[in-house]
């Protein structure tokens, strides 16, 4: 398994000893290698919190998380960078470095990984071509449209060939045509063997990849951890239990 959650709970902050409600409760699931997952749920359901646990931006309040076969909950802090380099993240708000050009933003994971400068240029050019932005290589993020920024963010997330790609509402700021194109990029990565987790509340998007597995969050609880449910139920529909993964 790429990742396994067992009875994971997460609550934010609060005074020590004081009660603070959980934003995620008893979340259990497993991500298989090379599989495409949609994570759905209404705004505030806990999608972003679950993704933050996945890309190691947060530790859970309780439960077990195994990532790439290792315990991610008790993992020493100094080991986290090595694991984060195996994960590509597309943030909801892009989070491009504003002072760097599009090409330098895309190159950032390679530079962080310590790749030699003369080896960086070619993969960056290929990646920019892949997202259709070769002619915008020198542009600063502020001069790019929302869709262009999103594609740069995706190129940055995948350039280091991550084993796990996590995207938080990647189509939230783009028109339907662009959303289609972005989804095709994720599919292409998935075909190359990357496990992809896309959080979205766009139900139309879910229809476009019939082979994708689906997980649905409702008020911090995972309703379909099996991935068997192709179409999300309404809030009043009881969720099936059991574990297949």
């Amino acid at each position: 398994m790429i990742c396994q959650f067992e009875n994971v709970g997460l609550s934010y902050g609060g005074e020590p000893g004081a009660f603070s409600p959980e934003v995620l409760s008893d979340v259990s699931f497993a991500l298989r290698p090379g599989t495409f997952y949609f994570l759905t749920g209404a705004s505030g359901a806990g999608k972003t919190s679950l993704l933050r646990l996945l890309y190691l931006a947060q530790r859970p309040s309780r439960g077990i998380i195994r990532l790439f076969g290792e315990d991610a909950v008790t993992m020493p802090r100094e080991r986290l960078p090595g694991f984060r380099r195996r994960i590509g993240v597309v943030f909801q708000d892009f989070r491009l470095v504003p002072h760097l050009s599009a090409a330098d933003n895309v190159a950032l994971p390679l530079r962080i990984a310590g790749m030699a400068e003369d080896e960086i240029d070619q993969p960056v050019r290929e990646m920019l071509a892949w997202v259709g932005l070769s002619d915008r290589a020198d542009a600063r993020p502020a001069t790019l449209s929302g869709g262009e920024q999103q594609r740069i963010a995706i190129a940055r997330a995948v350039i280091a060939r991550p084993e796990l790609l996590v995207a938080d509402e990647p189509t939230g700021n783009v028109d339907p045509d662009m959303a289609d194109r972005l989804l095709q990029l994720f599919e292409a990565m998935n075909r190359l063997g990357t496990t992809v987790v896309v959080a979205t509340h766009d139900f139309q998007l879910l229809q476009r990849i019939p082979s994708a597995q689906m997980m649905r969050l409702d008020a911090g609880r995972l309703l379909d951890p099996t991935g068997a449910l192709r179409h999300p139920p309404g809030p009043e529909t009881p969720s099936p239990g059991g574990a297949r993964a």
């Binding site: 931006a57 090595g82 380099r85 993240v89 470095v97 994971p109 962080i112 940055r156």
Partner: peptide
């Protein structure tokens, strides 16, 4: 802070 957080998420170490 925002840039540093992104760098951390991309696998940057504190030393970097």
């Amino acid at each position: 802070r925002a840039t540093i957080e992104v760098m951390h998420m991309l696998g940057s170490t504190d030393r970097q």
